[in-house]
Design a protein around this nucleic acid. Sequence first.
DNA 1: CTGTTAGCGCGTTCAG
DNA 2: CTGAACGCGCTAACAG
Lengths: 335, 335
Amino acid sequence: MTTLKDLAKLLNVSISTVSKALNDSDDIGEKTKIRVKEAAELYNYTPNQMALGLKNNQTKTIGVIIPNILNHFFAKVIFGIEKAARQHSYDTIICISHEKYASEVNSLEVLTNGRVDGFIMSLASETLAKEHVNHIKTFKKADQALVLFDRVSEKITCDKIIIDDEQSLYKATQHLIKNGRQNIAFVSQITNLEIGKLPLSGYRKALKKADLPFDEQKVLKLSTSENAHQLMKGFLLSQDIDAIVSADNTSGIMLINTAKDLGFEVPKDIAVIGFGDEETSYLTYPQMSYINQNPEEIGKTATELLIQRIENETNDQHNFKTIKLSTSLALRATS
Amino acid sequence: MTTLKDLAKLLNVSISTVSKALNDSDDIGEKTKIRVKEAAELYNYTPNQMALGLKNNQTKTIGVIIPNILNHFFAKVIFGIEKAARQHSYDTIICISHEKYASEVNSLEVLTNGRVDGFIMSLASETLAKEHVNHIKTFKKADQALVLFDRVSEKITCDKIIIDDEQSLYKATQHLIKNGRQNIAFVSQITNLEIGKLPLSGYRKALKKADLPFDEQKVLKLSTSENAHQLMKGFLLSQDIDAIVSADNTSGIMLINTAKDLGFEVPKDIAVIGFGDEETSYLTYPQMSYINQNPEEIGKTATELLIQRIENETNDQHNFKTIKLSTSLALRATS
DNA sequence: CTGTTAGCGCGTTCAG
DNA sequence: CTGAACGCGCTAACAG
């Protein structure tokens, strides 16, 4: 690794001359600048980020910790974060907790204290389930900037971006009702109980609003993909269902496929609205209607909130915002 | 941010005493250690990673740059990398190039020189297409450890992990032939020409081996999901096809769905083998047979190669390895 | 126009 | 047992 010192020795000038030359300081003569820059080029000099960070006490970098990279939603949030960060000349570094508490703590330690100026994170399901949030609290006490999104905890005081999951399912269910569906089922593949509450509530509220009965039998909760197809088949056959809202990324797709295999026509016999984005909606035929959580906007909002917090240094506890973003319903061919 | 200095002032001892106490040096008395540790706990002291890295000239961190986070394959490679890295007490930091050359260069700069000890990367398709590899070369000249996987370039001299895509499709095609299929189609959604060559070659070789004719009409190349369903329908109806091998992550799924919608039975009328993993194979019904690229093993192999390179410092150019990993065929219900 | 010095936070000598 | 001094690579204030 080439350092300023190396170049200085090489050119028989002082370290600061090299530094200034590379930074185009007025102090340095044109010829010297050129000489230095050529040497830097030749020896592939790049400033050491560690030293820069240490010096400036800032890194212009945002750390992101997400629980699961296989989930399209998080992947797209990251896309939004990177885009917004770049616009403010921040870089982005990502760590993954794999839904594990220990991993989350580790990632936090890896990035804390020097490597990034602030964090955007979504909590691991294990963290949420066990309500282990001390690592975050400690971290907050150290005056680090933090924005939580989606998987948030009430126990943590900070800026938060949340998604209006209740309204999402309310709107989706309502849409199906307006189209004349009377027997709407709710399907969800949810590992964490807490996370699943709001969507179900939205579904129930929509039914209630339309004076339709809520039937426990029409709610299917799946824990794994393993035997999901079989459970779905049994579910579809045993019930009198003309529409389904699905509250996760995959079950909508699986439902459409199993329903069609059983001879149902989609959407004629059974309408389906799932979760996802344009890309995943192409995985079914006909193309699936979906609730779009607008992940890119979530990323963008979180990033801008964080950068504001970083640069204003106004860590007044009373000023923390919680922004609730709404979703949109993308109607395709299955509803 | 609490520093050693802060604690030292607070406790009226010297900085080095605090440092030693926290590191359990024999130099320090038991009572002092306790006093220091309590204060550190109280003030949420954590060592500054920047300063540590600067001091030790190592970070025990691996940088990963991948082109596309939406791709399950890359997501799983990361999983393999993190697991292997952790076993060697390395941390992992990820950057995403979004298939863009400029982004890749930037990510490289973000992580280079201080933030990580070495890199694992897969090139962006733009980088590959334009054959812009100077950024990597410069980077290599600075004696940085680097392992490329999957999307590699011949123009770069370093350790590489590649996947035997040719053999994958050879084996898949051969399997279909053994099961009595005579009219096997090849479908692929490929953006980059270079990347798509080997799978097609494997398919052709398997046909040749079995004395089956290669028919250009039975090869479908898709560029976008947009009108893919329609193209697939036309393709399936106009040809006399009894099996399909698909060389990307999504087209296998889409094919099964459109084929079934057209009234074909899968696998009776048309057998399908796609790319993917157990999880994505559940997205179709019946569950899709797939070629598993063993992404976790790729991650593991890359990581171990990199760590070896980092710790041995043996950067002799002649010693660079290229490891070709084979894939496995996971037979489910569609073939 | 160029060089010297100090300090960012840390751990490690080496003196005391 | 404790502390002062040094250096990692860098920039900025200050001399010359």
